[in-house]
Amino acid sequence: MNVLEIRNLTKKFGDFIAVDNMSLNVREGEIFGFLGANGAGKSTTINMISSLLRSTKGEIVILGRSIASDVQFAKMNIGIVPQDIAIYEDMTAYENVSFFAGLYGLRGAHLKERTEEALNFVGLGDKQKSLPKNFSGGMKRRLNIACAIAHRPKLIIMDEPTVGIDPQSRNYILNSVKQLNRMGCTIIYTSHYMEEVEEICTRIAIVDHGKIIAEGTKEQLKAIVTDTKNVWIEVRGGDHLNINSVKHIQGVLSVRLDDHMLKISSKGEINNLNLILQQLIQDRIEIRSIEEQAPNLETVFLTLTGRNLRD
């Protein structure tokens, strides 16, 4: 059963097309990774799924009901974990969760039980009466999640839930996502951290320029780039590098320089490493190390979009 169906969804802001005729299905029980660089149309899509934005064209169906015809039903069944922490600093952890859960119709003992349950789930059971302004970044992120799950939504949308937190809190949150999934929640997960997406997502869509350019399991996505090979060359003096001259070498698909790491994707059947090294030597670039990368989500993303996820 599809928890979410997106059909020919388009969103325009004036002449700018943020989402371009997008179609997508998310099945029940999935942790669905939604990847895209900044400005790719990912947040706009999420905002339309959450009923925060109206679509220009197309349809969104949640649990079999169109948002356009029954927005209340859609809202009742969705939980949002926004990228920016969305809590009231002057209200206790308990009051925050209780207030937002109350907006979903929970009352009395039921509300109390669900609030405590959500706080315990994110490990803030002993901080119920504390004000979030005294919390660490990780604790605030966990409270941000608790506010989204107390009403037990069927679909949880998590937009960069681990930004700017310590590894321990990140692990806690990732485990929480997996546990929520085991409890029956379907999750749409966006992140700039590829390793997170690789670790927890069962299916992934890559968005670029408002369109889904690839969709499938990790293995299926990696298979897309088996006809390419990726070489990472650690260099010094990269300021002198003429990237265009490398791009024009036969077989090169994409080139980018991240700090001191030159990341080159080339067609698999062409052996151009000697030509690349010659060009670097000609440009007086000092080569520190050379490493061939096995296909991973990052190389897939780079190959498909020509951009890094953090761009």
Partner: peptide, 13 residues
């Protein structure tokens, strides 16, 4: 500015 507008708008009210 608190970003809570997102939660309020996403809630069924």
């Amino acid at each position: 500015t608190r970003h809570t507008a997102i939660r309020l708008m996403a809630a069924p009210i």
